[in-house]
Design a binder for these strands. Sequence first.
RNA 1: GGCGACGUAGCUCAGUGGUAGAGCAGGGGACUCAUAAGCCCUUGGUCACUAGUUCAAAUCUAGUCGUCGCCA
Length: 580
Amino acid sequence: MNEKILVSVAWPYANSPLHLGQVAGAYLPPDIFARYHRLRGNDVLMVSGSDTHGTPITITAEREGITPGEVVERFHRSFLETFLGLGLTFDLFTHTDTENHWDVTLRMFNRLLERGYVHKQTMEALYCEQCQRFLADRYVEGTCPFCGYEDARGDQCDNCGKPLDALQLVHPRCKFSGDTPIVRETEHFFLDLSQFNEPLKDWVAAKDYWRTAVRNFSLGMLEEGLRPRAITRDIDWGIPVPVAGYEDKRIYVWFDAVIGYLSASIEWAHNRGTPEAWLDWWDPERPARSYYFIGKDNTFFHTLIWPAMLLGYGDLRLPYDVPANEYLTLEGRKFSSSRNWAIWAPDYLSRYDADPIRYYLTTHAPESSDSDFSWAEFLAANNNELVGTWGNLAHRVLTFAYRNFEGRVPEPGDLTDEDRAIIATVEAAFAPVAEDLEACRFRAGLAKAMAVAREANRYLDAAAPWKALKTDRARAATAVYVTLKVVDSLKVLFAPYVPFGSEKLHATLGYDEPLFGRQEVVEYQESERRHAGLTYHGVAEGTDRWAPSALLPGQLLREPAPLFKKLDDEIVEQELARLG
RNA sequence: GGCGACGUAGCUCAGUGGUAGAGCAGGGGACUCAUAAGCCCUUGGUCACUAGUUCAAAUCUAGUCGUCGCCA
């Protein structure tokens, strides 16, 4: 039976392009996972979108003298291009500034309010009399109460690293007017997370298959006890609060952003003309599993806050797993956009293909600890492993078959023990690689596939059909057939990781139907608003194609070409020169 | 400061009580179908540190140091 798999992907802030740290942490893993399940014939719903609210976006807009909407549009388009280029098969990548998302968010807000999970509370905040508005933490600067640094931000001190509340700042000043803000009372809505503390404890405790960092972190938070958390803010960019007297306030960005997983699923169903279809993944009475792919900084929101909101709303599925990744550093240092210490995905894609970075970021994935991106390592992984071991195996046997056997898969004779052994090896790899993929151990699964490719290289070297061709053509034909069959299977094992190479190989082997469907950018029109989204059109849905090769002798091959490009050593120096 | 994770060969990692492992890099070799790729052989490690438990510790316990995240 086909499984329903919800692949929820972190919502990127639409205020800068995506960099490779984000790709490694939250964007590539879900696509590997989704493509595996698509090959399996499972019903995948992979959703995400641009987070269009939040003060970083208004800060960017004010700095550049444009509207927040223009900032959002620019980077949302950039994300769509990046995901097309990287081959991320979102069923829907939308954004949060849509009528649909606003509706779903307000339904959640109202239901939680009705049920007593949201209450009003008075708090103190800084107010700038010159600007006549309350100041978000990011809009205040001042002296750090801990280290005395004079330019500490309202949310954190850049000098000592301590998290701050703007009210703690000594000599606070408004980032715009420079005036000293005053402390003023303001009323806000709070989500009372404490009511969910006990049910969440039982729920997390049962997740014994979660990553240790994710599970222990969440259990620790519950042990300390969850406290009410503000879900509205005194700002003007965001979703309006649907309560009289709150016209000047907006929903706090974190609250509406996590709702995106739900609203995007609903939008996807609506867009394809089956408005109830999202329930197959969200109705807890139906069989399905939901996965949330995020970076470790977002763990709290996905293992505790979002589940609390879902419990409060009722009748919605809670996360099955939240395989949060650690961080990627760049040449030993943290990614930093302000210091240009970053590799921007659009920039990468302007010079290189998607598969090499998909390969490298998987082998160096920050699954269990922070890991480092290095151009020298990237070059070595591409040239020695992806090209040398796997791409070359496919290419050497294909060119040999194409030239010496009339461009067809040769007819095999009797199989030797060695022939049977290598076929058995690759067939036996399907189960363990699948097990790794199902458990989100992407690094391990790829290593197993590569180990089989090395075995196949050894087999081919020993069988040496280029020698046998001169003395025993039938033997050469058999060895070539066996290797093609092994390569045909390896193509499937590698497909979730390096889909472009596998697709190319699939066509070269003479198949007419593609392995994967196609991505498309679509303009969606709502009653008053319009937005662009990325969608995916699947192929062979419902068919399990995660299976060993059944390659037919005589099948007509297409002219072989290398699957992946070898990269020049010089790129390391060139790329390092672009940093900083 | 509190909580959590991590710290094993140059790099990426596996190894949860019984004589330190893999891939890549480095060194040597034979071959040539192949993107000078692949194949064979091989050099690398007081398993962060300290103390303890045990016949036996990378693995268990306590503490220390370092890195990263979170602290609503």
